[in-house]
Amino acid sequence: MSLPIRVLLAKVGLDGHDRGVKVVARTLRDAGMDVIYTGLHRTPEEVVNAAVQEDVDILGVSLLSGAHMTICPKIMRLLKDKDAEDTIVVVGGVVPDEDVIPLRDMGVKELLLQDTTPKEIVARLEKLVQERGPR
């Protein structure tokens, strides 16, 4: 019996919209994953601490506020500092096209933006964990 994929879903900074991330949480649960949700208005430090303690496979950051280019580098740096670089970071929400490549360059493994279907989200996360292999 293989273990469920563990995912931490986070809302960071001044972003009060969490309908989307809750739909994603439910979708991932229904796909058999263990989903931990941080609640609204977390700091990057809080999110990374939670990701380390929970030892999640995937850290999903939901951002609708436009602050992704400030928040994502912080998260990536903190994960490195905490010896948790093997956490797969994905970003969901609203991100302009020109920021996609810079985000990937800093280590964000996948961007699941507003038109991604639930089925596709599940498939892409499963693939990322499979590619990473056992740890």
Partner: peptide
């Protein structure tokens, strides 16, 4: 599905 939503952390944000 065997999946779960683990929500206890939301009430413990003061400790993180």
């Amino acid at each position: 599905s065997g999946g779960a939503i683990l929500g206890d952390r939301i009430r413990m944000t003061n400790l993180v």
